[in-house]
Simulated scan of single mutants.
Amino acid sequence: MNNRPILGVLLGNSAGVGPELVAKLAVQDIYKAYCRPVIIGDLRMFERGLQVIGGDVPYYPINDLSECDWERGYPVLDLKNQDPSLVPFGEAVQYCGKSDLDQMDTAIELCKAGKIEGFVFGPFHKGAMKMAGMHVESEHTYLADKFGVTSPFGEINMMDDLMTVRVTSHIPLKEVSENLTEETLREAITLGEITGESFGIRPRIAVAALNPHCGEFGLCGREEVDILAPTVEKVVAETGWDLTGPYSADTLFIRALNHGEFDVVVTLFHDQGQIALKLVGFERCITVAGGQPYPVATCAHGTAFDKVGTGSATTTSFERAVKAASKMALAKRTK
């Protein structure tokens, strides 16, 4: 147990299923297989999570991580910022969004101080965080700003051992081609490489094509000929990375998922990889904060406002997030 990494486990948005997920893994005694957890959030929200699922575990509040003793039970760094009477089930409110930001800020500072080695978080609510003053696009940009990250960073979607990284994300499909450049492709490839390395592997990276049949040598679109193939060749020549492509997207994921040929797939727009991963194993998908200096992961689903308070939310994705963050923390130690 003493060799396992110390990870923060953030309760997530108080109005969502995060507290229930954190509590379920505690009741099932899952954490000890991967890490030494420090639960971060309001103690009353953790207690409410236990109440919802009808479970109980030994736990105790702490004010500093020097008080952690995992033989006693689960330490809870109590932020004392969520009055249960002000927290509705299944609603996006500023009060809970502020707690999301407080949890992240606390975990970031603990990482910087060397008191935790990374963290996982229950689902946050982006809209509530923006109500509470988050003025950037997502938690990934928020993390990068707080950690001072300037190199490529962003959301990595992962199912089992396969990672996907996107060149473009939340833009209309009609704008994908104009945003597909050597620079944006290089950034995505680099993010895939450094995230693979954060798991302690030299990743095998494949780049997806944009057009049907990989563009048919320019007869069905020029992006493969003009941008994708030349950039792949340049990056390989410059870095020696295990990088190939472009490959037709309609067969690439068969090779990646069924035959295990690749560790990372670089996709060109949001749904190109999301559909494949979620169709094959939605509950097994997680999100990794790629490019950050510390391991950060979460489940791929959101706050599940339609399920909160019922105890019916499944824990598969959240457990895999804990496993991934722990693996990254151990790889970082070795590196």
Results as ranks from 00 to 15, higher is better:
333 R>K: 11
121 F>Y: 13
134 M>Q: 04
217 F>P: 09
67 E>P: 04
122 G>E: 01
315 T>V: 15
214 C>H: 02
313 A>D: 10
251 T>K: 08
305 F>R: 02
139 E>Q: 13
210 L>N: 03
156 I>P: 00
23 A>T: 01
200 G>R: 03
86 L>D: 13
8 G>C: 03
319 E>L: 11
299 C>A: 15
221 G>A: 10
192 G>D: 07
176 V>P: 06
22 V>N: 01
276 A>K: 07
292 Q>I: 12
160 D>Y: 14
146 K>F: 07
2 N>T: 15
170 H>Q: 07
270 H>K: 06
199 F>H: 05
87 V>T: 09
72 R>Q: 14
190 T>G: 13
154 G>I: 00
183 E>K: 13
111 C>V: 14
272 Q>F: 06
3 N>R: 11
61 P>L: 06
263 D>P: 15
117 E>F: 05
242 D>E: 14
335 K>I: 08
263 D>S: 15
44 R>C: 10
41 G>W: 00
322 V>L: 09
199 F>K: 03
302 G>H: 01
119 F>H: 03
308 V>L: 04
95 Y>H: 09
175 E>M: 13
38 V>C: 06
157 N>I: 08
189 I>K: 06
275 I>V: 14
127 G>Q: 00
49 G>T: 02
166 R>D: 10
252 L>H: 02
263 D>C: 13
281 G>Y: 04
310 T>R: 12
53 I>D: 00
93 V>N: 08
289 A>R: 01
129 M>N: 04
152 P>V: 07
179 N>A: 14
28 Q>P: 08
275 I>D: 12
153 F>T: 01
55 G>N: 07
270 H>S: 06
322 V>R: 01
75 P>N: 11
254 I>V: 13
127 G>C: 04
236 V>I: 15
334 T>R: 15
221 G>L: 04
200 G>P: 05
172 P>E: 09
278 K>N: 03
74 Y>F: 15
246 P>W: 04
191 L>I: 09
35 C>S: 10
122 G>A: 03
20 E>V: 08
129 M>K: 06
249 A>E: 04
33 A>L: 10
25 L>D: 05
81 N>I: 10
45 M>F: 04
240 G>Y: 09
286 I>D: 01
159 M>T: 05
151 S>G: 15
203 P>C: 03
249 A>K: 02
12 G>C: 06
252 L>I: 11
261 E>I: 13
219 L>R: 12
64 D>C: 08
24 K>Y: 09
97 G>W: 03
168 T>Q: 09
257 L>K: 08
132 A>S: 05
303 T>A: 06
40 I>R: 00
173 L>R: 11
9 V>K: 00
264 V>C: 01
306 D>S: 06
245 G>A: 08
